[in-house]
Design a binder for these strands. Sequence first.
DNA 1: TCGCACATGTAAATCGTTACATGATTAT
DNA 2: ATAATCATGTAACGATTTACATGTGCGA
Lengths: 220, 220
Amino acid sequence: MSPTPSTTQRALLGLLSIRPWTAYDLTRQMRRALRWAWPRSEANLYNEVKRLVPHGLATAVEEETGGRSRTRYEVTDRGREEVSAWLESQPPAPPQVELEALLRLFLADQGTVDQLRRTIAETRRQMLERVEEGVVIAEDYLHDPPFPDRAHLNVLFMHFSAGFVRLMLTWCDDVEAEIDTWPGTATGVGLTPGTRAMLEETLAYYLATLDQHARARGAT
Amino acid sequence: MSPTPSTTQRALLGLLSIRPWTAYDLTRQMRRALRWAWPRSEANLYNEVKRLVPHGLATAVEEETGGRSRTRYEVTDRGREEVSAWLESQPPAPPQVELEALLRLFLADQGTVDQLRRTIAETRRQMLERVEEGVVIAEDYLHDPPFPDRAHLNVLFMHFSAGFVRLMLTWCDDVEAEIDTWPGTATGVGLTPGTRAMLEETLAYYLATLDQHARARGAT
DNA sequence: TCGCACATGTAAATCGTTACATGATTAT
DNA sequence: ATAATCATGTAACGATTTACATGTGCGA
């Protein structure tokens, strides 16, 4: 009757375990923070919280605030158990990246260098938007942290997002520098000096990593 | 009648623009390479290629190879146009990361340090698997590239995936080092020296980035 | 007072996954 | 000869998104 909740539902349950929220605040929190780990559309979130209730994982209270009514959700004991069981369960799903810009790069020989350049420029713009949001949040946390007793977790969380932004921005730089040396996207380019160097560096890093972890395992 | 194709369909069309493939080869290619940019289940891919045909974007030929028949797909002119139009169209969807491990970290105060440690260990293991695949592909490309005239694109593509793996592995290291200093996930931890340093470094990087791009824009 | 952003959803349509099915090929 | 794996899907189900709907407060 109650199949195991989806990861989206578990994320909402997790938020509710921190404290009660209204539906709208939940979507805000998902947009502000959890977008980095589990991005979902807002309409979907309204839907999924509501579905926690009939499963006995959360309770809903209607509040009359002036005109329109809103719903405040609270986690139940069964809800908390569900979160615990999930954290205990092995293993987490593998990381997945959805990156249309990278897809376009892969197929760039079907188009022009200029199209590719615009794709990269747009990607950089998107990342700079995230940086602007990040500055606000980071300053918040240095002066007046919203959840002081969760600061250690939130900072490790932000540490990932900062790393991701950095990755994307340097990748954009690398791609731009490289395509500037191309006569076109398709015609007789092949392995350039730049891409050959990248390839060798990548392989060296991979081999070093495997080696290091093989030795770490052996030393245990 | 033909609503604009989904990105998954465009990815398949893009592959078909390189050359004709059988359904199975398409799924292989998606698994081997495009997983990094647009991960989809194999069953779905079989479905989506098939749906290209009634829209006039691809043609299908049944081939009898021994016993069972297989389908070979080819792109049509309309299919190529569709890919061009897509590459021309602004803007690409923003990058999205789905990372259950990061979600678990965010909610780690609902569980134990040991659970978190296991999550990180599993994530590292998943990434090392990717490294092993990557070694094979990179060596291929150095000795006997499968698509020599596409090498420049494929290497820039791999450059991203290598960067992502590196990001994940160093993040795992950082998290492990930090949580080793915690007495627990929740009880009176707050902003530790380690996380404070991270936070300051993140903020500094963000500000430097914004500054740099503001000046770059000003200098144009 | 007009429009726009905030706040809060619903309904329909689509997208995508999991589970199943089945013949062929290879390894043991 | 058997089991495992490759190759190729189908069907059912569930998750997600898009588009719409509507009230409320605020700034120009």
